[in-house]
Amino acid sequence: MSTKNTQTSADAPLPVLLPFRIEPTRLGTPRLAPVHAVLIGAGLALLAGTAWAQADAAQLSPLDVIIKWAPLLLYGFAFNILISMIAMALGTGAGLGVGLGMLSENPLLARVCWALTQFFRNAPWLVLLFFVMFLVPFQITVFGVRIPLPDWVKATVGFSLPVMANVAEIVRGAVRSVPSTQWEAAESLAFTPRQTMWQIILPQCVKRMLPPWMNLYSLVTMATVQASIVGVSEMLTLTAQVHTAEGGRPELFAPLYGFALFCFFLYCYPIDRFTARLERRFHIR
């Protein structure tokens, strides 16, 4: 082989020899514009329309089916919202505790909270959900009083665990992002560390925590449909049941699930926009 040949092959790198790289992905929900909603809606309508055109004229149109079942489906959707809100509330409360625990001067507490956060942040939500569903009994007895634990309560607890871990990380990051000079100033004014945290540091963190927290809420809301896998009567479960009740007609598949998509989109999209606006506003200041 001549030198010239080697040179050319060196100049033009062989694709197979290039190192494999995973492109870094941006965390968080993808940003959607209203035009996407219109496109998706139009696509679904077209799909449903063609399907229906091939169907028996005696049957209800997809639109009529949706209107007929809308109260039930919306009831299911309200259940998704309820689960997401309770899970978020529980997770935020616990996450605040765990996040502050990670920052504790007590090394044991800090380690335990760190481990908790890492464990629940790096576990698939569905696996956590299964664990809670099958590990927690259907009722507990406290001081002789039987408290039933329906499936949806267990699912809510299951969702609150990853929320807790993510909130803990948000809290830790926000507290760390406050300049250490704020601690110094408070120290020199004879504030105790606890007072400094609650009076001076955390109030400044709220602004920094709000956008990621709302982003997390959006994710939780969308994740609640996973509860259908463990039999909670939320929107996705009900949609499947409605589909079966209508004879499992294939042309109803897209409109019914499209309706579910549409509901989630209508709910999560404004949150997403609002988060983006907050992020922009806080960046400027």
């Binding site: 000079t181 704020q182 110094e184 100033a185 408070a186 020199s188 001076i200 109030p203 400044q204």
Partner: peptide, 9 residues
Amino acid sequence: FQQYNLFPH
């Protein structure tokens, strides 16, 4: 302090 370190909130 040099950087004032007022509480911004």
